[in-house]
Amino acid sequence: LDMDCLPYGWEEAYTADGIKYFINHVTQTTSWIHPVMSVLNLSRSE
């Protein structure tokens, strides 16, 4: 699993305190969880 590779439309950013988060420019949303990890967690719960 390549954690450096973000899906299309996603960008890694940091808060003023240096905390990493992710921006989805396609849906105009943000997430604290890496988008690949959130997809993996969803697929495990099914």
Rank of each mutant, 00 (worst) to 15 (best):
H34T: 01
E12Q: 09
K20P: 12
I19E: 15
G18N: 02
H25W: 01
D4N: 12
A13C: 06
F22K: 06
I23N: 05
T27V: 02
T30A: 06
A16Q: 11
E46A: 08
A13R: 08
Y14M: 07
Y21S: 04
E11S: 09
N24G: 05
N24M: 00
G9C: 01
S31D: 01
Y14D: 00
W10M: 01
I33F: 07
S31A: 03
P35R: 01
D17T: 03
R44S: 13
I33M: 12
Y14K: 01
K20F: 01
W10Q: 07
N24L: 01
W32I: 06
Y21E: 00
H34N: 12
Y14E: 08
H34C: 09
V39N: 14
L42Q: 12
L40P: 13
S43F: 08
E12Y: 03
F22E: 03
L40C: 11
A13G: 04
I23Y: 11
L6G: 04
T29A: 08
E11A: 04
M37L: 12
F22D: 03
C5D: 15
L6V: 08
L1T: 13
I23G: 01
Y14H: 07
P7I: 00
D2N: 09
N24H: 10
G18E: 06
H25Q: 11
Y8E: 15
I23C: 01
N41V: 05
T27H: 14
Y21N: 05
D4L: 06
E46Y: 08
E46R: 12
D17G: 04
N24D: 06
F22Y: 14
S38N: 12
V26K: 10
S38H: 06
S31T: 14
V39F: 13
V36M: 15
L6P: 07
T29W: 07
F22T: 09
C5Y: 10
L6M: 05
M37S: 15
M3W: 05
S38L: 04
E46L: 06
W10T: 02
T15L: 01
V39S: 12
P35A: 00
G18K: 09
E11M: 03
G18R: 03
M37Y: 09
L40M: 13
H34A: 06
G18W: 08
S45V: 12
I23V: 13
I19S: 15
Y14G: 04
I23F: 05
D2T: 10
T29S: 09
P7T: 08
N24Q: 01
Y14P: 00
T27Q: 10
T15G: 07
P35D: 01
K20E: 00
I33V: 14
N41T: 11
V26I: 12
Y8Q: 12
L1W: 10
L1M: 14
C5I: 12
L6H: 02
C5F: 12
V26S: 12
L42Y: 02
P7D: 07
R44D: 14
D17I: 06
T30Q: 06
S31H: 00
G9F: 01
H34L: 02
D17V: 06
Y21A: 00
P35W: 04
Q28P: 03
L42P: 10
C5K: 13
V26C: 14
V39Q: 14
S43E: 14
E12A: 04
E11G: 03
V39D: 15
V36Q: 15
V36A: 15
P35I: 03
Q28G: 15
A16H: 10
M3H: 12
M37C: 13
M3L: 12
G9P: 09
T15H: 01
L40N: 13
N41L: 05
E12G: 03
K20N: 07
T27E: 06
W32C: 10
G9Q: 01
H25A: 01
G18C: 01
D17Q: 07
M3I: 09
E12K: 00
H34G: 03
V39K: 11
V26Q: 13
S31Y: 01
S43G: 13
S31V: 09
A16L: 06
M3R: 13
T29L: 00
H34D: 07
K20M: 02
K20I: 02
P35T: 05
M37P: 07
E46N: 12
Q28N: 14
H25F: 08
F22I: 05
Q28V: 03
P7R: 04
G18A: 01
T27M: 14
Y8N: 11
K20V: 05
L6K: 11
T29C: 14
S38W: 11
T30D: 02
S38K: 09
I23M: 04
S38Y: 09
Y21K: 01
Q28R: 10
M37K: 15
M3G: 12
D4H: 02
D2M: 10
S45P: 12
Y21T: 01
S43A: 08
D2V: 07
H34Q: 07
Y21G: 02
V39W: 07
Y21C: 01
P7L: 05
K20W: 05
M37R: 15
E11Y: 01
N24S: 01
H34V: 00
A16N: 10
W10C: 00
I19G: 12
D2L: 09
L1I: 14
N41K: 06
P7H: 06
M37F: 10
I23T: 04
R44Y: 12
N24T: 01
T15E: 02
M3Q: 13
V39G: 15
M37T: 14
E46I: 11
Y21F: 01
C5T: 14
N41C: 11
S45Q: 10
P35V: 01
D4E: 11
T27I: 03
N41G: 11
L1R: 02
Y21L: 04
E12P: 03
M37V: 11
C5R: 11
L1D: 14
K20Y: 04
P35S: 06
M37I: 09
T30I: 01
T29F: 06
P7G: 05
L42M: 12
N41E: 11
S45W: 01
Y8S: 14
S43Y: 02
L6C: 09
S45M: 00
E46D: 11
M3A: 12
E46V: 10
A13W: 04
M37E: 15
Y14F: 06
S45Y: 10
D4Q: 07
P7S: 02
L40Y: 07
T29Y: 07
T27Y: 15
L6Y: 05
R44L: 08
T15A: 03
I33P: 01
G18Y: 03
L42H: 15
N41W: 11
Y8I: 12
T27N: 09
M3K: 15
S45G: 14
I23D: 05
H34Y: 05
C5A: 14
G18I: 08
F22N: 03
D17L: 03
D4F: 07
L40K: 13
